[in-house]
Amino acid sequence: MGKLTIEELRKIREKAKRSTNLRDAQGKAKITVHMGTCGIASGAREVMDALLDAIDRYGIRDVLVTTSGCAGLCSHEPMATVEYHGSPPVKYAKLTPEKIERILLEHADKGHMVEEYALAIGSEKMS
């Protein structure tokens, strides 16, 4: 590494921020992939791999990906929930690598729900 100019320092900062913004938990949207046994058995792993790959490929910076357990509707797995900043969460069902990529680009990145894959809007009430 040679000596930096100010422009180069700024570039490094931008690049490094992309990998650490996860740590600061700042993002406009969060995608939760349900990775219970049922989800994994029906292909949640492939969905997750495709999602992470797409985020990298499109250089999307502020979408966070996390996992959770079984959502209770095992027959509709693989499932994922998208929470776009300021909107109620949306559950998507019977996902494939292709479907999750479209959900990422349209909903998580731009805020337009992909209605044809959506199962429900909102979350269950907690007691």
Binding site: I6, L9, R13, S19, D24
Partner: peptide
């Protein structure tokens, strides 16, 4: 929040911005 042995981690958290 950062790995103290990785300078990029510090830079990503606005490190050396004040010096700049």
């Amino acid at each position: 929040m950062i790995d103290p042995e990785v300078i990029e981690d510090y830079i990503a958290h606005d490190g050396y911005m004040a010096l700049e």
